[in-house]
Design a protein around this nucleic acid. Sequence first.
DNA 1: TGTCCACTGGAAGGGAGGGCTT
DNA 2: AAGCCCTCCCTTCCAGTGGACA
Length: 412
Amino acid sequence: MEENIFESMMVESSLFLDKSRLHHTYVPEQLPHRDKEISTIAHNLVEALHGQIPSNMILYGVTGAGKTAVTSFVLTHLQEKGDNIDAKVGTYVINCRNIDTNYRVLALLGNELIDDENEKIPFTGWPTDRVFDVLMRRMEDEGGVHVVVLDEIDYLIKKSGDDLLYNLTSLNGMLRNARLSVIGITNDLTFTEYLDARVKSRLGQEDLIFSPYTASQLQDILNQRVDALVPGSVSDGVVNLCAAMAAREHGDARRALDLLRASAEEAHRVGEEKITPHHVRLANNRLERDQMTLVIGDLPLHQKLVLFAIYAHHRRGVKRITTGEVYQVYKQACRHSNSLPLTARRITDLISTLDMLGMITAQTVSRGRYGRSKEIVLCIPSSIDIEQIMAEAEPMMQNVVNATYSIQSTLI
DNA sequence: TGTCCACTGGAAGGGAGGGCTT
DNA sequence: AAGCCCTCCCTTCCAGTGGACA
């Protein structure tokens, strides 16, 4: 029998001893430079162990500032302690970027509280009120204190409003046997603007701001994890460079860890046993490219067409593009892809989405007599071949690209 | 100073697709 | 099967807007 293709790869030595330690979801035994934050949250949650209601909290801070890690860390300890002293504590972490409707959050919480598959709340079909009632009843049956963490809570609020928070934060008034505490996590300092005054005061009983890590703090974090790699495989300057690059990206610890991991992969790929700053730079480029490629490829067709329209202007040297200009080229592109164009109103939303994804920046500007519009600037690095990625993900896009440029070249 | 441009972005609602209840 | 409910994607309608220009 022929050798299995994975055989040689399995025995081939890698630079990793434990790759998972370099993943940003890994919660280590120590979280450097977050003592103050850990202590603040713990001081609040310790109330739960006394059978009291901890305050609701909002945690603010940029991506990779350790909000989620600190919270998971504290919750793990809380749960452990609760089990030890036989105090009933339930902890739930929900990422609202994925679970972004009131119904889904309630259903998920309700289902966490029950093991019987037959009693599970369906993912759709019930009136939301009913899901809420079931959740309340299950909490009451369970008793104790429930700590609900809503990570990236701004996504939920912007999409579904603050009804859920209103209901959750008023639940304590209805519960006799159980207590509930809500912790919201967000990187949007202004998100409370979207909240009703009552919700705002009830949720923001205690605010905590996580400042971004500095380069030297990031170094400490990386040094703590570097034992996930083969001893001696990291040459001088690698950790510092990863930290410096991530510090430039608003002190993002997630980025720093990703960089170190990807650098090891780059070194391993070319069969080298030592990771050098050169590998870090390669890794940095690859991370950027991979991330963009994935996002662009996954865009729905019309979103791709809008991005293409922006790119077509950009390629012609137009650096600040208005919504109207995008719409004109977009309509052409629709013709070439045999699809009906969406309305201009919808395109405004699609442009905002691209802005949110970081592919463009769209600023509303007034050009006086020439009206008000968005000024759109493409942010995708030129090293990324947008057209190729789109064509690979959606073969029809190749026609659009070809047709658009053949028209443009005849115009010139 | 008022007009008017080219939009922006909120609100309401339609309809297709998923699913539940009776 | 009929009647609901929730979500997603989209349309229609429209009030609002900042500033160049007459």
